[in-house]
């Protein structure tokens, strides 16, 4: 049996990637499962998905803590979280990165594959969604599944969800990544601050979870705690407002899911600490005054 953990962000399709990989393995005669872990998800938040493959029926129903492979869909995640946590010594990290494997530093020295998935996705699909791309890289880096099976898996899973035309493009993106993936070994020794979690006993936990603003080991909880959660780090594209074109209709202010647009005496202002780059504002602007810049 081998176990794969996918790291991505809400909207990047980590779940569909895990499903497509499982489907590809199934096509080759294996038993395979794929499943998500959903937290307080929304577009842009870090998410996990998992896949398990074996020759026989799989009974284990837990999440994966000691993966054989990790696949990271978002290039910025490796600087924020320890994506290699629990990764087996003989395992492999498959990363979306413009760097060569040797230039990457993770917790331990492990076999590493890299591919500039964001660029491939933008070229082939026109959007920075890297799930299918990373599957091509996985096929190349591990040899565990044939690229043809990956393409078939993508056609099955993506085809059913978003239609055959776009599924084909995704299969092509996977194939492109397959051809461009670099394989090597990363540097080890990177120290990650252990993510602190607030894990109170039932007695310490506010009764019924009615929570006043308070400081915990893991930061603020309760009303106003979001000031610490800077969603700006999620951003690939940055919205820029052209003041000349803006008619101050406030559509963008209304639609921004993060509430980070405000009106000032000097026109509209975006708080880039919290802007996650979703592009909704640009999409809604009737004056075409917002451009999304990488």
């Amino acid at each position: 049996m081998y176990e794969v953990r996918f790291h991505g962000r809400g909207g990047q399709g980590a779940v569909m990637a895990a499903q497509s990989l499982a489907d590809a393995a199934f096509i080759e005669g294996n038993y395979a499962v794929a499943f998500p872990y959903f937290g307080a998800e929304r577009r842009g938040a870090p998410v996990l998905a998992f896949a398990r493959v074996d020759a026989n029926k799989i009974y284990r129903k837990t999440q994966i803590y000691k993966p054989d492979y990790v696949i990271v869909l978002d290039d910025k995640l490796i600087d924020l979280i320890n994506v290699a946590e629990g990764l087996s010594k003989d395992g492999m990290a498959i990363l979306n990165s413009t760097k060569k494997p040797e230039e990457i530093q993770l917790e331990n020295e492990v076999r590493t594959a890299t591919v500039d998935a964001t660029t491939i996705a933008l070229d082939v699909l026109g959007v920075p969604i890297t799930n299918s791309v990373m599957l091509g890289a996985f096929a190349k880096a591990t040899g565990l599944v044939k690229i043809e099976s990956i393409e078939k898996g993508i056609m099955d899973i993506f085809g059913a969800r978003i239609g055959e035309r776009i599924a084909k493009k995704n299969a092509k993106a996977a194939r492109t990544a397959y051809e461009r993936t670099a394989i090597g070994t990363c540097k080890g020794g990177r120290i990650f601050k252990k993510e602190k979690k607030w894990l109170p006993t039932y007695k310490e936990l506010p009764l019924g979870l009615a929570t006043r603003a308070m400081k915990t080991d893991a930061g603020l909880v309760g009303p106003g705690s979001f000031v610490e959660n800077k969603t700006g780090s999620w951003r690939t594209f940055k919205p820029i407002i052209d003041k000349e074109k803006c008619i101050e209709c406030l559509f963008c202010w209304f639609y921004c899911p993060e509430g980070c647009i405000s009106r000032t005496s000097n026109g509209l202002k975006i708080d880039y600490d919290y802007c996650k780059g979703c592009g909704i504002c640009a999409n809604e602007c009737p004056a075409n005054a917002i451009e999304m810049v990488r």
Binding site: G39, A40, K197, L199, P200, T201, Y202, L205, P206, L207, G208, L209, A210, T211, R212, A213, G222, P223, G224
Partner: peptide
Amino acid sequence: HVHLSPDDPMTVGSFAPPEYIQEV
């Protein structure tokens, strides 16, 4: 334990991941 008031803000009935619900 629970007293919603503008002078003393609280979060009531919020989302909680599995890390907290069993304690609740």
